[in-house]
Design a protein around this nucleic acid. Structure first.
Lengths: 200, 200
DNA sequence: CGTTGTTTTGACCAGTTGGTCAAATGCAAG
DNA sequence: CTTGCATTTGACCAACTGGTCAAAACAACG
């Protein structure tokens, strides 16, 4: 039987994961170094490796944690709800995720950019299955004339693209916007966009 | 006066830039190695460095070339044209760029993800100025009631996000779509989206 | 052909990388 | 306060990193 983690273990594992998230999300797996992560976590490198077996292990732990939270908002899209409100709600939830968890968004982006070597299987199976299921719901809404007839897959892609852009391209968005805060305007824009797009 | 490049120089410099684009666009600056680039270019590492002074120099040459072509489509947005056609045309041009130059799109994405250390100045000056100028045109159209009243900056962001998504997240898009080709559906979807969004 | 400039290469280097290990330190329960 | 386990560390390693250099191979032109 596995022993319960001590307080020190909890604290240090959490510090490592947070530091790893910082570094991996900015530099990608290859570009990140254990020394960077160790420094960010306030630990020595051998001490890092006391808590995680390898660089891979830290990265894997982060990806696993990410997968859970990342797909949840889509899972919550409810076929029994009001179509337009459901889709707009999903977009807003995803936007909030970008605002509140930008590092996670960038970790995902980096992983996909590098060809998703570690999660391609999951994309092809779990993610595809989930998206296909929700796409069917959306298609049914369109067939019933409750929303406009748009390609459900590309509709979902559009929500991902539009919301993650604000996290992944944060520095560009802020450079262009100057002082203005991005997320309020983005939220308003998204609402208007999907309202008009989906009106039957 | 500088001598004209020999045929060998042209060929090898081109091979190096193409190889560098492959590697940098996938792994980012830090994650890319000269050995990788040399191998992809079919040259030895010292031979690489005969043509480019350093890793930085290859990357800088790529970024410079990218900046030109990357901002062109937006520059072509014409205040004298038909508003909705102009904006839809820009979106389509940008989508074609994603389709035809996905490596360039990913190079850009990687650079921004890593905090844009090498181009932040340009974002703050050139890019911001260009976007502000075009945003004014769009705002004028909205003020004249020729298009719906949407935030011009977020409208431009939406075009960037929606089009670049297909290049940057290519592997995810294809994993979810299965066999279906992404770009035809994307093109139709974009047209419908901006048509409906912008209708006054 | 020989000479001159261009291109390519093998050997090398110092710094960094992910990772190991034995020994030292800290700590909590009896 | 001691015993046993959890934690931390310094020293170390082999592989890889970006980069250098002198010498070799090649190309071109008279």
């Amino acid at each position: 039987m596995t022993k319960p983690p001590t307080r020190i273990q909890q604290r240090n594992r959490a510090a490592i994961l947070s530091a790893g998230l910082d570094v991996f999300s900015q530099y990608g797996f290859r570009g990140a170094t254990l020394d960077q992560i160790a420094e960010a976590a306030g630990l020595s490198k051998p001490n890092l490796l006391y808590y995680f077996a390898s660089k891979e292990a830290i990265h894997a732990a982060l990806l696993e944690r990410l997968l859970e939270t990342w797909l949840d908002p889509l899972k919550a899209l409810d076929g029994a709800g009001d179509p337009i409100a459901e889709i707009m709600g999903y977009a807003q939830r995803k936007l909030a995720l970008s605002r509140d968890y930008p590092r996670e968004s960038r970790l995902w982006a980096n992983e996909i950019l590098q060809g998703a070597p570690r999660i391609e299987d999951i994309l092809r199976t779990d993610l595809k299955a989930l998206v296909d299921k929700k796409a069917q719901i959306i298609k049914a809404w369109a067939d019933d004339g409750r929303i406009a007839d748009v390609d459900p897959h590309h509709l979902i892609f559009s929500i991902w693209a539009l919301t993650q852009h604000y996290a992944d391209f944060d520095v560009q968005v802020r450079a262009v916007l100057g002082d203005k805060a991005p997320y309020d305007g983005a939220s308003v824009f998204l609402d208007a966009l999907y309202e008009k797009l989906l009106q039957p």
